[in-house]
């Protein structure tokens, strides 16, 4: 089981801040494909990956990163701190 978190407009488009899913995805990109196949709201949220960032177990990561043993994956737009 894996926790998938969404922030900012990604959260708004998908409609939930967090969900627990069963997945066999090997990489972040595979997970994205799995989610997109679920429902249109995911397809919309993940339509342009260049507009998204990802963190695996609370560390910034890449879409080609492996998910081996990962417990938490978060998707969000580029950050606007400061």
């Amino acid at each position: 089981m894996m926790d998938v978190l969404y922030f900012a407009w990604v959260r708004e488009r998908i409609g939930v801040p967090k969900e627990r899913i069963e997945t066999g995805a090997a990489t972040v990109a595979d997970l994205v494909e799995e989610l997109k196949a679920r429902e249109e709201r995911y397809e919309v949220a993940f339509s342009d990956l260049s507009a998204l960032r990802v963190a695996v177990d609370q560390e910034l990561s890449d879409f080609d990163a492996p998910l081996d043993g990962a417990r938490e994956v978060a998707f969000f737009p580029p950050m606007t701190g400061g």
Partner: peptide, 22 residues
Amino acid sequence: LKSRAPFWKKEIGADGADWVAA
């Protein structure tokens, strides 16, 4: 802090709200 700390700003105005773009 601007682009590597996980914060997102949203401006809420009279006609709705906009996420601040990076």
